[in-house]
Nucleic acid binder design. Structure first.
Lengths: 225, 225
DNA sequence: TTTAAAATATGACATATATCATGTTTTGTT
DNA sequence: AACAAAACATGATATATGTCATATTTTAAA
């Protein structure tokens, strides 16, 4: 099993602030986990005893609404941590994490990390920064949900995925989501999502190859109202 | 001017984790500010050079949507801090803060507090806890916005205000908001808010005395679909 | 390769909510 | 107290989105 202190992935998250000694200690307690596409990493209500570091793959964080529909709150990719909240709270998690493709995760037990939280202010401070950033993003999502049309939200989601996660060599979005996933991100019915995608195709803003989506007029998408 | 180390308000926020010495030092640099109802405390885009501690009154944190409508993200009451994000980031604030009634605020300069962030892990850890909590709440709001009807969101907002901020002696909600404010919380048109409030009245879930609202069937409101 | 299941697509229709118009009440100001 | 301005209220109508039905295509499995 790889060693945290040599792992390049940590550079993308708060673990980069830990000292070599701290990383060696954590590395000795970590466990690796392979998760297949569609598998549940953890579920709303579970008690997390540590955090996950995503070494490979993508997952969605979802929350079940009282009407029975899932809402996707965030997409998490290679390099990011999941479950940071477990470090500061013993409550159960409020979100589920589900793999969108095959993933490789490292599980770092809270019991080991909690020491560093207490001693290494850099680490705590970096976690704080990341949470502050997440909070800012959450504010934006709230405004979008509350004030924008399905058409606008879908356009912005496509732009977001394009800008944040990039495209494959053929130009299609590298994060492959089902139409239902898109619907669960923007908070609408799957049929509405499909309909708006069809509109976007007719307006030559995107093309589709099967379920793959390729943005052909990014500026046009930005102008969608 | 009062002294932080003797101020009871700090017990309600992260400042409670600071030592007496730290509080004395901050107290010497703080400034007090009286803000009238409707006044702007800070605006989206401003650079905050510290945090505010709310000693008296209530304010709303709002964000302007690209369609020109304001969205209320959070209500902040006596005891809470505003602008914590300025402590971990030099970016401009992403929200505006506007007083909902006459307020008394203490401004604590970042330059003084930043020391404590670096030295006192308890303080950083407590901030982290509060942000984690805010993030959890933001997740709930996102799901509500995305998945629930205006009727449900208004009912939940009334319940939230009732449970979090309480009522006056006559039973009306102690936080007095305009119909437009309600509309900006739940992300709908003011007319729709007024209409749904009228429905709630007809269904004997609430009564109104002018713009004041009194919940008369809390359980009924919880059952709204 | 064949077949079943899942995902995508589209039409028809129902419904919630926005918008515009207009009137009434409340609030604040001189 | 009188007045103007703001907030509240309600009707009529338009529009966006949800829901249900039903094809079609794609994917996964036997």
């Amino acid at each position: 099993m790889g060693k945290c202190e040599q792992c390049i992935i940590k550079e993308f998250n708060s673990l980069k602030t830990l000292t070599n000694d701290e990383l060696v200690r954590i590395s000795n307690c970590k466990t690796s986990r392979i998760v297949k596409k569609g598998e549940i990493i953890f579920e709303e209500g579970d008690i997390l005893k540590g955090i996950y570091c995503v070494r490979e793959g993508i997952c969605k964080l979802t929350k079940l609404s009282s009407n029975g529909k899932d809402q996707i709150i965030k997409l998490v990719v290679k390099g990011e941590l999941i479950g940071q909240r477990s470090l500061v709270s013993d409550e159960s998690v409020n979100l589920s994490a589900i793999a969108l493709n095959d993933m490789e995760l490292c599980f770092l037990p809270k019991s080991e990390i909690i020491n560093d939280l207490q001693k290494n202010t850099n680490f705590t401070f970096d976690l704080l920064k990341e949470m502050a950033h997440d909070l800012k993003e959450a504010d934006d999502i709230i405004v979008n949900m509350a004030q924008k049309s399905v058409r606008q939200r879908l356009a912005e989601t496509l732009i977001y995925i394009n800008d944040s996660f990039g495209t494959k060599s053929d130009g299609t979005l590298s994060v492959l989501l089902s139409r239902e996933d898109f619907a669960n991100i923007i908070g609408t019915a799957t049929e509405s999502t499909i309909r708006v995608l069809s509109q976007f195709k007719k307006e030559d803003l995107i093309t589709t190859i099967g379920k793959q989506i390729k943005i052909i007029d990014l500026e046009g998408l930005k102008r969608v109202e």
